[in-house]
């Protein structure tokens, strides 16, 4: 199957899923799910635990593949055999708890897995470049870091999420999946992250947000996908729905 190159992405980065099925043994995790998300938008997937959100995200991010149905990016059918492959194609996922490694320092986290190397025989880790770039990239997200050699665990919860988002963008993410980015954060930290997620729209990123928090999701998102027991039971544009409608559908 075609491996997507970054050049496939143009001004728009549309992602389409058509009639996706996924079974785990006898369990039907996804049944005939279709969805379409576009760049410059925040697309929210809502649903209870076990509804199939994670399965859907794992298919999009290349952790595993669908049993049936098509996965398309800009009308081209794609298939990823690993999260790395998806990442190289511009699809990144920021996971709730696994975004960064607390006991490693900030710049080592930022470049984890894609360390810049100096030219020459030994290909040493170019720490100067890594340090400088980390400071620059985090500044774009309003985080001032004086010493990127600090353990990343010393950052606040919100700063850690933003670090992971900044990293994904720096390495060319065009479609960004955010898995419960604020679920473990206090109000203040949560707002920091929310503001940065909104700013991603101006950068023409196709944001796919997984959330439990209906109020926050409604405020942030442009489009809603509701999953229940492996079915996509409803889809809305923001102007077609309200917080109360969403609550009713989800039974909360």
């Amino acid at each position: 199957m075609a491996v997507l190159k970054k050049s496939t992405f143009m001004n728009s980065n549309r992602l389409d899923l058509h009639n996706i099925y996924k079974n785990f043994g006898n369990v039907k995790a996804l049944k005939n799910v279709s969805m379409s998300t576009n760049s410059g938008q925040i697309n929210c997937i809502l649903g209870d635990n076990g509804a199939g959100k994670s399965t859907l995200v794992n298919i999009i991010s290349g952790v595993f593949q669908q049993d049936e149905g098509d996965y398309k990016i800009n009308d081209e059918i794609v298939s990823f055999s690993s999260p790395m492959e998806a990442m190289n194609a511009g699809i990144s996922t920021v996971y709730q708890n696994l975004a960064i490694i607390p006991i490693m320092n900030i710049y080592r986290n930022f470049f984890l897995g894609q360390e810049p190397t100096k030219k020459g025989f030994f290909k040493t880790f170019d720490k100067e470049f890594a340090t400088r770039t980390t400071i620059e990239q985090l500044e774009k997200f309003d985080i001032k870091i004086e010493n990127p050699k600090r353990a990343a665990g010393t950052l606040s919860g919100g700063e850690r999420q933003i670090l992971a988002i900044a990293r994904a963008l720096y390495f060319g993410a065009k479609i960004l999946i955010l898995d419960e980015p604020t679920s473990a954060l206090g109000v203040k930290e949560s707002n920091k992250v929310v503001n940065q997620i909104i700013s991603l729209k101006n950068q023409n990123i196709n944001v796919i947000l997984i959330s439990h928090n209906i109020e926050q999701a409604y405020m942030l998102s442009d489009k809603f996908f509701i999953i229940k027991n492996g079915d996509m039971i409803d889809q809305f544009e923001k102007n077609q729905t309200s917080v109360n409608d969403l609550r009713k559908i989800l039974g909360k």
Binding site: Q114, E115, F125
Partner: peptide, 28 residues
């Protein structure tokens, strides 16, 4: 010292020990 602190492999060694799951997701 050189391998651990000055090379890419070194960064991967730290990460592997610190969090297997995170490292796997980053393609290490």
């Amino acid at each position: 010292y050189f391998m651990l602190n000055q090379t890419q492999i070194g960064n991967w060694i730290f990460a592997t020990g610190a969090s297997k799951e995170s490292s796997k997701l980053m393609g290490i």
